[in-house]
Amino acid sequence: MLYFLSLFLISSSILVAIMKWRKVSLIALIYFSLLTAILVIINESHWYPFSLIRYLLYILSSGIALLIPFFLLLLAYLMLSRIEDDRSLSGMRIFFNLTISITFIGIVIFTAWVVIQKNYYMTRFLAIYTLVAMYLIINLFLFIILNLFLLLFRFNVRSKDILLVLGAQLTTDGEISETLIYRLNKALKLFKQAKRNGQKLHVIVSGGNSRENVVSEAEKMAKYLIANGIDHHCITIEDQARSTRENLMNIQSLLKNRFPDHKKTLIITSYFHLLRTYFYAWRFGYNLRIIGVRTQFGHGFFAILREYLAFFVLTKELNYFFMIALLIHGIRQVLLIFQ
C-alpha cells in the first residue's frame, strides 16, 4: 500500500511542477512523497541500520504514546480556531475541519472512558497510539531536516529585484524581536551588496499589528532599515497582514498594482519558517526564491515546534489520511494479537 502511495505522490509532484498547477500544493506533495518513502524504508527494510532505527523509534514512541490523546485535542482546538479566525474558508473546508475535530475528540473521549473503566482494551489503544506517535516523530524529524536543507539555498540578486521581508511578532513592549532582526539584517546585507554593484533593489516589509495599541511589525521594520542606511523611498510597507498567508497574498496584490515591471522577488524569513513560506509562495504564484536566516538557539527550538504544528494543520488533509490509515492498521494488528 505504502509503495503505491509513494509512487502516486511522486508522480503527482512531477506533474504539478511541470504543469504549474498553483491550486495544488507542490510543497505538500513533495513533503509527503518523502515522508511515505521514509515510512516504507523504515517499516519494510531488513537492513540492520534501519531495523535498529525502527526499534529505537518504537521505544521512543511507546514512551510518548500516552501523550497522543492530548495532541489530538490540541489539533482539534487548532482546527476549530481556524474556522473562527479565517472567514475565507469554504463550506467544504469548514465541514472537513469540523469532521476531523469531532473525530479526534471522540477518540479521546472513548480512550478516557476506557481508562476510567480500567478495561483491558487500554493495552490495545496504547499499541495503536504508539504507531501514531511513531508517525509524528518521523514527521517532526523530516520537517526539521527539510527546513535545514532549504536553509542552504542561496540566490543571486539582480537589478530591479524586490526583497520581501516577512514579519514576526514584536516583543511584549512593542520592540523588534531577535528573530526579526536576523531577517532585517539579511535584507540590509543584500541591499548594500547590490548597491555597491550598481544594482537597484526595493524592499517590502510585511506585518500587521501583533497586539492592540501597538504599531505594526512593518512600521517597526521600516524604521530599523532606515536607521541602518536604506532610504525610505526604497521601502514599501504592508501593514495589514496577520499571518504568513496574508503576508504573501497582500504582497502579491501590491506587486501587481505598484511594481508591474519588477524582475523577481526574493523572500526573506527564518529557517524554521521556510516550509510554510514555500507552501504559500507556490499557491500565490511567486517564483520560489526564498532565503532562510538563522535565529537565536533557544527561540529556534520552540519556534520549530510551533511551526511544525502550524505546518501539520496546514497539511491536515494528508496528515489526517495517514493517521486514520495508521489507526486502522493498528486496530488490525491488535485484533490479530488478541485473537
Rank of each mutant, 00 (worst) to 15 (best):
I204W: 04
A37R: 08
R22P: 03
L170S: 10
R289E: 15
L67V: 08
S61L: 01
L56I: 14
G207F: 02
L2E: 11
L184K: 05
L266Y: 00
F32N: 06
L150N: 10
I304L: 12
L34G: 02
I204F: 12
N213V: 15
L131Y: 10
E307M: 04
N287S: 15
H273Q: 01
Y48K: 10
I328T: 09
Q117K: 15
H46L: 06
L166R: 02
R93D: 15
A76C: 05
R54K: 12
N119A: 14
H329R: 14
V215C: 11
T171N: 07
K256T: 07
T171D: 10
N228V: 01
W282L: 11
H299E: 13
I181A: 14
R242G: 14
F302K: 13
L80N: 10
L336G: 06
K20E: 11
L318E: 11
L201C: 07
E84P: 00
P49D: 06
L190W: 03
Y135D: 06
W21C: 09
K195I: 07
E238P: 12
N287M: 08
E84M: 10
K118D: 10
V40M: 06
S101N: 10
Q339M: 09
Q193C: 07
S45C: 05
F321R: 06
F322P: 00
I42T: 08
L7H: 09
L78W: 03
L89I: 05
I251L: 06
F191R: 08
L80I: 12
A37D: 04
I83E: 07
A187S: 11
A325C: 11
S270L: 02
H46E: 14
Y286N: 09
A65S: 13
N119K: 05
K186Q: 12
A227D: 13
W113Y: 11
I324P: 04
S90E: 02
L336T: 08
F50Y: 04
L336H: 12
I41T: 15
R196F: 09
F95M: 12
Y224L: 07
G292A: 04
I144N: 09
L56S: 06
G167P: 01
M1H: 05
I109V: 15
Q193D: 12
W113D: 07
K316A: 14
V215F: 15
F312L: 11
E44S: 12
A37E: 01
F149V: 12
N213C: 09
T244Y: 01
T277I: 03
S25E: 03
K160S: 10
L57T: 04
A218K: 05
H329P: 00
E175G: 14
R258Q: 14
I42H: 06
I328N: 02
K118P: 00
R54W: 13
